[in-house]
Amino acid sequence: MLPTTLNESQIWEALKEVEDPEMPISLVDMGMVFDVSVEGANTKIQLGLTATACPAIDFIFYDIRERLKKEGCEDIEIELVWDPPWTKERISEEGRFILSTWGLSV
């Protein structure tokens, strides 16, 4: 297995390019990425969903893996976090701006 070439902040950068499948906003700006940790070749991502029955869960996992594969990360673990739950307070300033131009206010 190829060792990952990215450190944690680079993973965060890459995740900033993965969009929510339903809106033009990144998972990071949505506040859905709770934690990133890199240990050797293994990248672990803790993800909070906006709803337990998130319709896009499969796409989100797929998009994260595809994006990180491009950086040479192969060993990716995605863990769902329910405690603490995701709340809209987690959306970034930039995210709020994007959502307001998309017609949503949070």
Binding site: A53, P55, A56, I57, D58, F61
Partner: peptide, 12 residues
């Protein structure tokens, strides 16, 4: 074919 895909289809 799975729980996750069922969620997305029902959401549609």
């Amino acid at each position: 074919p799975s729980m996750n895909t069922r969620l997305s289809a029902y959401a549609v």
